[in-house]
């Protein structure tokens, strides 16, 4: 990534302001039917599984097996399914939902806070060891996250942290991507002259950060937060190995356990609950993304300029 950064630095710097004004002054061209067909096909590909999920969340376990997948059939039982999902096994689904929220709020929130403060520090201060920090963090991005899972599990297990929320929250606190994004974002978003002026006025570094810089960094922070939320919400591997007690499961591990109940000799499949539970799991993330599109799209654009 370093080499990519250093390539054509002048051009990247010169044109990064284009992002802010969004787009270039180009004439709108003739509408293309061919391209529209290509895009419609891709949208159908994207949307069919989601439609399948919605449609089948409205079926009973019996009509799941007996009907065409992409159309409604049997009694409309979406609300019954939702009710059963939420109350099954003493409301364990709601407990998983609460756990996921806890991991997301503390894990993703903490990751964003740490990455923002550190990325800002990298961008606006020069200090001994700065290059070493860069090398270590960038090097760590290349290490497969799952390669760390086994040793982290063993460490946590000797500290008695497995089967507690800490086992999920602590590793989630690190977002090298967020650190990198805020760092590159802060270089231009926070003018060094402004910080000098604040220093002259006698403002401490942290006060300057929280009162001035953090506001200028807001779009970058929202982007990092969104991607940290998605990463934590979707986390599966880590909780799978760290937790054996269902009462600490997040939604992902809970759902995969429900789906495995369907296989085996004396199994009583609850596929209708797996399907309805899956639908309930994705709705919050989809809503967050739809409502905050403007933020993450501009934030991503900034990130890619700096590549």
């Amino acid at each position: 990534m370093t080499t990519v950064t250093s390539r054509r630095p002048s051009r990247a710097a010169q044109h990064s302001h284009v992002v802010a004004v969004h787009g270039r002054p180009r004439r709108r061209r003739r509408h293309s039917v061919g391209l529209t067909i290509v895009m419609v096909i891709l949208v159908i590909y994207t949307i069919v599984p989601l439609l399948w999920l919605i449609i089948n969340a409205s079926k009973t376990q019996a009509s799941l097996f007996a009907s065409f997948g992409l159309w409604f059939s049997g009694p409309f039982s979406l609300f019954t399914n939702i009710w059963t999902t939420l109350t099954y096994d003493d409301g364990i689904f709601l407990r998983w939902f609460g756990n996921t929220l806890l991991y997301v709020v503390v894990g993703a929130g903490g990751a964003t806070l740490l990455a923002t403060i550190a990325g800002y520090g990298m961008a606006k201060f020069k200090f001994p060891g700065r290059r070493a920090v860069f090398a270590v963090v960038i090097g760590a991005i290349a290490v497969p996250g799952t390669a760390l899972a086994v040793p982290t599990f063993l460490l946590f297990s000797s500290l008695g942290l497995t089967n507690t929320p800490w086992a999920i929250i602590l590793p989630s606190l690190i977002s090298p991507f967020g650190f990198y994004l805020i760092w590159t974002y802060a270089i231009e978003a926070v003018p060094t002259e402004l910080l000098e002026a604040a220093r002259v006025d006698g403002s401490g570094e942290f006060r300057t950060f929280f009162t001035i810089s953090s506001r200028l960094l807001a779009p970058g922070i929202v982007t990092v937060l969104l991607f940290a939320i998605v990463a934590t919400w979707n986390n599966y591997f880590l909780p799978l190995i760290m937790l054996s007690d269902p009462k600490w499961y997040p939604l992902t591990v809970g759902l995969s356990n429900w789906s495995q109940q369907g296989t085996g000799a004396s199994a009583v499949p609850i596929y209708n609950l797996v399907i309805t539970g899956s639908l309930l799991t994705i709705i919050p993330v989809v809503i967050i993304f739809l409502f905050l599109q403007r933020f993450w799209q501009s934030g991503l654009a900034t990130g890619s300029v700096k590549q």
Binding site: I117, A118, G121, M122, A140, V143, L173, I174, F179, F209
Partner: peptide, 24 residues
């Protein structure tokens, strides 16, 4: 001074990434 900003991230990073790699 910059370390005051980097330190919290660096500490957690050390504990959650570097230590597990070394331990592995």
């Amino acid at each position: 001074k910059g370390w005051a900003f980097i330190a919290p991230f660096a500490l957690v990073f050390l504990a959650m990434t570097v230590v597990p790699i070394v331990y592995a």
